[in-house]
């Protein structure tokens, strides 16, 4: 641990406020606020491990290390547990960073999935064409980064089949998804090729409702819920990590289950 000395005369709380600026809104600007109360640890260790900028840098480095550990732990053949129909959570929760009435309404008639990046055939896909892909159903557990979980039924096409169909370079590192409301996610290629990673068109027996991501959600039962983008309008195969809405704010990038 590096010794981090405060500049005499500089208010420690100001430094922590400075670090908190990286956070998007006041409610979340508490990132390291609690750290100040850990002052006692400084006495024990002799070095100020909880100083704002240093702590944030170190924590982010460790989170990146954890991405690598999780990628190594990820077995492409390990399937997420599946459940009987009776286990499906009644009234599967809506969850987003906006209210349910603010969910984007996409016009299915004019919708086209934009394809980009390291792909041979970049022709956009209409919803009608997407629906023609071979589909399968999965009943799996959605686990939220907040801790709660719910079991749902999702039907759609395997992303791995689709990537092959469009001639994607599957040796590329990432697949990046952009959503109608501006949300985004980047996922690792091994997860994109996992047999349960699905382009979802139906929830239960009905066309995917707006609250679950009409017209298309990417269902990834091997990742936390926020890594399952809804209202997906664009898909890019890339070697550059494009980040994501929550990942950029501090949630662990890999977030594998």
């Amino acid at each position: 641990m590096r010794k981090f000395r405060l500049i005499p005369g500089v208010d420690k709380t100001l430094l922590i406020k400075d670090a908190a600026k990286l956070m998007p809104d006041p409610a979340r600007r508490q990132f390291l606020r609690g750290a100040a109360s850990l002052g006692a640890l400084t006495l024990l260790t002799g070095c100020d491990i909880v100083d704002g900028p240093t702590a944030e840098r170190v924590l982010r480095k460790i989170s990146e290390f954890n991405d690598g550990v999780q990628a190594a732990l990820f077995n492409p053949n390990t399937l997420a547990p599946t459940y009987p129909e009776s286990a499906i959570t009644p009234d599967f929760p809506f969850n987003a960073y906006y209210g349910e009435d603010e969910a984007p309404v996409v016009n299915g008639e004019t919708y086209k999935l934009e394809i980009g990046g390291l792909v041979e055939n970049k022709t956009p896909w209409t919803l009608e064409d997407l629906y023609k892909l071979p589909q399968e159903r999965q009943i799996t557990r959605h686990i939220c980064v907040e801790g709660w979980s719910a079991i749902g039924s999702w039907t759609g096409a395997r992303l791995s089949d689709f990537l092959k169909r469009i001639g994607a370079d599957t040796s590329a590192k990432y697949v990046w998804f952009r959503c109608a409301e501006g949300y985004s996610n980047t996922i690792d290629m091994p997860t994109a090729l996992h047999p349960q990673t699905q382009m979802t068109f139906k929830y239960g027996n009905e066309i995917l409702p707006v609250k679950y991501g009409y017209p298309m959600k990417i269902r990834i039962p091997t990742k936390l819920g926020f890594k399952n983008p809804k209202h997906v309008v664009s898909l890019h195969v890339t070697n550059k990590d494009m980040g994501g809405y929550w990942e950029d704010q501090g949630y662990n990038w890999f977030s594998g289950s």
Binding site: M23, R29, A35, Y251, N252
Partner: peptide, 11 residues
């Protein structure tokens, strides 16, 4: 608590 918000605490 430590971390200020969920992401900080998880880190």
């Amino acid at each position: 608590t430590l971390g200020g918000w969920l992401a900080g605490a998880l880190l």
